[in-house]
């Protein structure tokens, strides 16, 4: 009897320890990601949630009261002619910057994808803007693009072109910012393109040479399709980055002249921290979140198909 009893206790103990071991196994992964979850919630989820919360309120940043206003911030924003121009500017800026950067970098990569000291030097030279802070770059280009004393107009004068008011004319101001962004971006893009080009097996080109393929056809039928993952990656990353342009605008043009270079992030900043319309600024923030979100979803959806990846 006693023996049977002690046996039973032993069994129960074993079961219990097995159960607690099982629990520990189930709980352990959550314990491990807990610190990361805390950081993520505190610094990502909470601000996003708070921004969405604020977008339904009217608040001036100092008053203790936040007045709930429903969707009126959204309706006001979407009817705001200035915001419509801001959206247009942002899209113009982003698509022009990305398409120009990509086409110029691709051409440069095709040229620089060779061995030799000169190619290394050029690659280093065009990469250098990437490591300079945007503030310095903005200051530099403000001088280069100065209407009366700038390097750019001096250079154009040599060809008999009269002074262009780059940053002070609404017709050229957005273009000027695009030029700066392209100038800064091509080094990095070229580097990624060169890496992409180098991953294409050489013997494919040899096979194409034996097939008597012209250079143009080789590029469009072989190189470009093989580069499609790189191309796609850079397009999406570039677009998402350009939608959020801020520093150059803040330093070089302050959104002007006459709102011609105002973009979403600068508009958010302006409304929030200069006009203290926090609710309104948050609403613009939500719109930006949606736009960037849509492009990110497209990126991940398309990533799995349409684009050729080497097996």
């Amino acid at each position: 009897m006693t023996l049977a009893n002690s046996n039973e206790t032993l069994h129960r103990k074993r079961e219990q320890s097995a159960l607690s071991a099982l629990n520990w196994v189930a709980v352990r992964p959550y314990m491990m990601i807990f610190p990361a979850i805390i950081v993520f919630t505190l610094f990502f989820l909470y601000p996003i949630g708070y921004m969405i919360y604020l977008s339904f309120h009217d608040w001036n940043f100092v008053s203790p009261d936040k007045d709930y206003v429903g969707f009126s911030n959204f309706t006001a924003l979407l009817q705001d002619a200035k915001f419509q121009q801001v959206l247009r500017n942002t899209f113009m800026y982003s698509f022009a910057t990305v398409s120009l950067t990509i086409s110029i970098s691709l051409l440069l990569a095709l040229w620089l994808n060779k061995k030799g000291a000169m190619y290394g030097f050029v690659q280093g030279a065009i990469f250098s803007p990437h490591i300079i802070s945007l503030v310095s770059i903005s200051m530099l280009w403000m001088w280069i693009m100065d209407t009366d004393y700038g390097l750019l107009n001096w250079f154009l004068n040599l060809f008999g072109i009269s002074n262009i008011p780059w940053l002070t004319d609404p017709k050229t101001s957005l273009l000027s910012l695009i030029i700066v962004a392209v100038w800064k971006g091509i080094g990095y893009y070229t580097l990624i393109f060169i890496a992409g080009l180098q991953s294409i097996p050489k013997d494919i080109y040899e096979a194409a040479a034996l097939d008597d393929t012209s250079k143009v056809r080789t590029f469009f039928k072989l190189t470009l399709p093989m580069l499609s993952p790189t191309l796609f990656f850079l397009t999406i990353i570039g677009l998402i980055g350009s939608f959020q342009v801020f520093e150059t605008i803040s330093i070089m043009t302050k959104g002007g002249p006459i709102n011609s270079t105002n973009t979403i992030v600068y508009y958010i900043y302006e409304n929030g921290f200069r006009f203290f319309k926090i609710g309104y600024a948050s609403t613009a923030g939500v719109i930006l979140l949606l736009v960037v979100g849509v492009f990110t979803i497209i990126y991940f959806k398309l990533l799995s198909r349409k684009v050729h990846y080497q097996s």
Binding site: I204, E206, A207, A209, L210, L222, H308
Partner: peptide, 30 residues
């Protein structure tokens, strides 16, 4: 002379097929 003008066809060790094209397009390319 350029390889393409020599009227030579080559089979490579790693086949060197054009990965983005179908079999038909691969054969048709030349």
């Amino acid at each position: 002379m350029e390889p393409g003008k020599r009227n030579i066809a080559m089979v490579f060790q790693n086949y060197a097929l054009y990965p983005t094209m179908t079999v038909r397009k691969n054969i048709e390319f030349g």
